[in-house]
């Protein structure tokens, strides 16, 4: 799981072009949106594409997004459960 979390951090930084943020700056349990990394709705779309492109996971119900993208750890858990 730790390996996947570290990989995800790097992918999120690259996909969202988070300048001046290193993987070590991201707490895997802190919120990605709002108070945490401060991501917004466009970032959410980018993360949906990231899951589909890099892990072959398509989110069928948008309502699930809030739970899946809560933090890097929740993303990693979802990937582990659903990776094809």
């Amino acid at each position: 799981m730790d390996e996947l979390i570290n990989k995800l951090k790097k992918e999120v930084i690259e996909q969202l072009n988070l300048e001046e943020i290193s993987p070590d700056d991201i707490d895997p349990d802190s919120s990605l949106f709002g108070e945490g990394l401060g991501l917004d709705s466009i970032d959410a779309l980018e993360l949906i594409v990231l899951l589909e492109k890099n892990y072959g996971i398509k989110i069928e119900d948008p309502k699930d997004g809030k739970k899946i993208f809560h933090s890097i750890r929740t993303m990693a858990e979802y990937i582990t459960e659903h990776k094809k």
């Binding site: 996909q15 072009n17 466009i42 779309l45 980018e46 594409v49 589909e52 492109k53």
Partner: peptide
């Protein structure tokens, strides 16, 4: 590269 799939909005 992605054969017109996985298009990102930004």
């Amino acid at each position: 590269r992605n054969k017109e799939e996985f298009l990102t909005p930004t």
